[in-house]
């Protein structure tokens, strides 16, 4: 009984703040406080007309899409090598690749800023953010893709080669379709991480901020708070949708490879 109370309290603690987002996003008052005054969609309408927000969202989408593609490509190379080949100090190399997972983002941000600006004397742009986001997303991609590649029987590709296909077409015809759910799920995760990443984007963005940085800017104006709530509501809905799709694809991939689900990344 006490365990049940604890579990319920825990879930409230986790999700109540997020549940407040949609409530105040539709609340007809500029001040975030109970009691609620009435229903409105004005804040969503305000989102539609804010052009600097639109630019920020476009920036973020571009960065997130590029990050998803690049980090998943890197992840495929690493996961395939890890699952199918034996090479010297493999464990050490794989460990080093996964290290950014536990590296504080602020460290990554500051050190990259120093490298880009001081050492290479380059300007900050979307690409500096993309480079940093690829760095932090790749370990997540590898973690997901490792599952997909390790469930794969290495003799599948060999069988395709034995039946007359070249190494590349064997990969394309056999391996790729079998790990495709993993690839999509990896891209979705990388996309989500990049989209709402703040610290690195804040340090490394040039003149045109990303969406999280723009939202942070809005927070200085209390009157804009309900608009932020509306934006937050949309983001939460999208995140849940994307992560659900990612997980469903991962499970489908497991089923397709004929493996029992051993519990995955999510």
């Amino acid at each position: 009984m006490s365990l049940r109370v604890y579990a319920i309290a825990y879930l409230i603690f986790l999700y109540a703040p997020i549940a407040l987002l949609p409530i105040f996003a539709f609340n007809d008052a500029r001040i975030i406080a109970f009691p609620l005054s009435g229903f409105t969609t004005d804040w969503f309408a305000a989102l539609m007309t804010n052009t600097s927000l639109h630019t920020a969202v476009k920036n973020s989408l571009f960065i997130a899409v590029m990050t998803a593609i690049l980090s998943t490509l890197l992840g495929i190379c690493a996961a395939r090598a890890g699952a199918m080949y034996r090479f010297p100090v493999k464990a050490g190399i794989m460990g080093f690749i996964m290290l950014p997972l536990v590296l504080p983002e602020i460290i990554v941000a500051v050190s990259l800023l120093v490298v880009v600006v001081q050492i290479f004397d380059m300007g900050l742009s979307h690409w500096t953010i993309i480079a940093a986001h690829v760095l932090i997303c790749t370990p997540f991609c590898i973690a997901i893709l490792n599952g997909a590649f390790q469930n794969l029987d290495p003799s599948m590709e060999e069988a395709a080669m034995d039946l007359g296909e070249s190494r590349f077409s064997a990969f394309r015809l056999v391996t790729l379709p079998l790990v495709m759910p993993g690839i999509i799920s990896s891209m979705l995760i990388a996309f989500t991480i990049s989209l709402d990443e703040f610290i690195i984007a804040f340090f490394l963005s040039g003149v045109s901020p990303t969406m999280p940085v723009y939202i942070w800017g809005l927070m200085r104006f209390p009157a804009q708070l309900p608009v932020v709530m509306a934006l937050g509501t949309i983001l939460v809905a999208l995140s849940i949708l994307l992560l659900t799709i990612a997980e469903l694809l991962r499970r489908r991939g497991m089923a397709r490879a004929g493996v029992k689900d051993k519990g995955g990344f999510l």
Binding site: D153, S155, M156, E158, A159, A160, V174, P177, L178, R256, A257, G258
Partner: peptide, 9 residues
Amino acid sequence: FQSYAIFPH
């Protein structure tokens, strides 16, 4: 192959 390596897809 020992595992037969039947392409599951």
